[in-house]
Design a protein around this nucleic acid. Structure first.
Lengths: 113, 113
DNA sequence: TCAGATACATTGGTTTCTTATGTATCCTTA
DNA sequence: TAAGGATACATAAGAAACCAATGTATCTGA
C-alpha cells in the first residue's frame, strides 16, 4: 500500500528536516531511499518533489550544502543550519500536535452539540 | 495556534466524510462550525475550500443531498451514500495508518543503515 | 555490454486550497 | 429602525505543492 498523494502534501518539508536533524548530513537520493526504507515503501518521495523542496530549504537558509565527488559523480550533501534546527523543532512539534488533533477527530463517535 | 495550511491539505475530504459518518446528515456551515469547535479553532475550514469539496463528493456519488427551508433560507443537507460509507472506512483507515507512520518517522533518533 | 542502480536536475500539468467576492436572510441591540 | 454580525449558499482567480515525464551522466554486476 502506498499512501494517496494528497496525504503527503504538506509533510514533506517536515520529514526532510527531521531526517537531517537526526543524521547530520544527507544527500538527495539518500533521503528518498531512507524514507522508502523507514516507511516500508509506503511513502515514496519522487525526485520531482524532493529537489525543489531541498532548493527551497536552501534558499530559506535552513540548510547548507557541500558537494563531494564519488569518483566522477557529484554528490550534494545537505546539513541543517542553526535556524534550520529551530525550524525543525517548530515543524515537528506542530505536526505532532496536528496528529493528535486528527486522531481525536477520527475517533469521534457522537455529536457534542 | 492555527495549523499551517499545508498540513490540512489532503485531509479535508476525510474529515468531512468522517463527520458525515458520525452524524447522519449535516449542512455545509454546520461542518465548518463543528470542525472549528472540535479542534478548538486549530482547524478552520473556509467555505471556499468546503463547498467545492462537498460538490466533488456529490459528483462522485459518495454523498446525497436534500434541501430544507428554514424560514426563507435554504439549507442543504449532505448524507453518505452506501459507497460513501465504504469510502469513509477506506480513507479513515488510510489516514490512521499514515498517522502511525508519521509518528514513527518523527521519533527516529538514529540511522538504521 | 547492457540493464539497473546511483545521482543530479527541470518542465509542464493537476490537484487542492486561499483569498476575495457575491447574494440573501435572520437576529440582536443601540 | 438601522446596522452589524451571524447564518448559509456559491463561484472565480490565483498560488502552492506535488506528480509524471524527461534529461544527463556515472557506476556496478552479470
Amino acid at each position: 500500500m502506498i499512501y494517496s498523494s494528497e496525504l503527503i502534501k504538506g509533510t514533506l518539508k517536515t520529514i526532510v528536516l527531521k531526517l537531517l536533524a537526526d543524521n547530520k548530513k544527507m544527500y538527495g537520493y539518500e533521503i528518498t531511499q531512507r524514507v522508502k526504507e523507514l516507511t516500508l515503501d509506503k511513502i515514496q518521495i519522487t525526485e520531482g518533489a524532493l529537489y525543489p523542496t531541498l532548493h527551497a530549504l536552501e534558499a530559506d537558509g535552513l540548510v547548507t550544502t557541500e558537494t563531494e565527488f564519488i569518483g566522477k559523480r557529484v554528490r550534494k550533501y545537505y546539513s541543517l543550519s542553526p535556524s534550520g534546527k529551530n525550524k525543525t523543532k517548530e515543524k515537528v512539534s506542530e505536526l505532532a500536535d496536528f496528529i493528535e488533533t486528527m486522531k481525536f477527530l477520527l475517533d469521534i463517535k457522537t455529536k457534542t452539540a
